[in-house]
């Protein structure tokens, strides 16, 4: 990229003297050549991120036939619909409980793996990452079979003990439980691997000092491990919260939002009204609604990180 930039400066040299001097001065400034070098990436981001974002903003202001500007009309319409508020509630329940369990399970499993002898650790790490590596659309299909009301492994096993059958995807509460379970299964390994890396970076002598100071294992986690991992916990939680809020495939495949919209979250409902319901502006409005919620979360968590960043 540098070569290109400087070659173009040479081409410019053929032009008039004044212009040549101006361009060369501009290129001599480090910030200018740095900007030129990053320009391709900036353009790529602009095309792939900024344009769709702005376009969806634009879409959200149109009527169903996309012929007329209606301003906040779509949002007004959404706010009056009960299903919309159901989706808001479900998205929050889905994202928050899934992230909490992912973090909790990831933390516990990371502790177990951390205590596995180093020569066996690689094997465990590899195996535990499998759920995260399989494309979620595929693994969700497998879960769908596990959840099947009549032939599934789960209900068969429960029947063996004289329990069930449980309508895993047929009852509103069970369906919510199931999509959260699959999301946790899929996402916990990511937390595990992040926390494992963080655990490894806590100096062993801090634990020894705490042990001598009289801390039991729980106090060691509370007073040493957790404070030392605070930043990584905040970042992974934020990151996972964003990804989980925007989840589509698991819910779409497992329940498609049913029964009776009781597992719809923003992305699946946006798809339902936008693509399947042929009201693209309304779908765009639904998906846009995620932005302010996530932005608020991001601001809070990131502000906390910068505040503590220079502590350790």
């Amino acid at each position: 990229m540098v070569d290109v930039a400087f070659q173009s400066s040479r081409t410019a040299a053929a032009q008039t003297g004044r212009r040549r001097a101006g361009l060369r001065n501009a290129l001599r400034r480090k910030s200018m050549s740095a900007f030129l070098m990053t320009l391709p990436l900036i353009l790529l981001i602009a095309v792939l991120v900024i344009y769709p974002a702005l376009y969806s903003l634009h879409l959200a202001t149109l009527n169903k036939a996309m012929t007329k500007f209606v301003g906040f009309g779509n949002f007004e319409f959404l706010f009056k619909r009960e299903t919309f508020w159901l989706v808001v509630k479900q998205s929050c329940i889905f994202a928050i409980s899934a992230v909490v369990f992912k973090a909790l399970i990831g933390f516990i499993v990371a502790h177990f793996v951390h205590n596995v002898p180093a020569n066996k650790q690689r094997k465990w790490r590899g195996m535990l990452l499998v759920p995260w590596v399989i494309p979620p659309a595929m693994s969700t299909l497998a879960w769908l079979w596990l959840f099947d009301p009549s032939y599934s492994a789960f209900n068969y096993t429960l029947a063996f003990f004289g329990l069930g059958p449980i309508p895993w995807t047929g009852d509103a509460m069970w369906a919510r439980f199931s999509v959260i379970l699959v999301n946790v299964w899929y996402g916990a390994p990511f937390f595990m691997i992040m926390y494992l890396a963080a655990l490894k970076s806590v100096p062993e002598q801090l634990y020894e000092a705490a042990a001598i100071d009289g801390a039991n294992w729980w106090q060691r986690i509370w007073y040493v491990t957790l404070p030392m991992m605070r930043n990584i916990i905040a970042i992974t939680t934020l990151f996972s919260l964003i990804v989980t809020f925007a989840n589509f495939d698991i819910v779409r495949i497992l329940t498609a939002g049913g029964p009776l919209d009781h597992t719809h979250i923003f992305a699946t409902w946006a798809f339902r009204v936008g693509i399947e319901g042929s009201d693209i502006p309304l779908g765009a409005s639904v998906s846009l609604f995620m932005v302010p919620i996530l932005a608020v979360a991001a601001i809070f968590i990131l502000r906390d990180i910068t505040k503590r960043g220079n502590e350790s």
Binding site: Y223, M228, S312
Partner: peptide
Amino acid sequence: VFQNYALYPH
């Protein structure tokens, strides 16, 4: 008292 002090950074 440890060689690298082992003070709790937080």
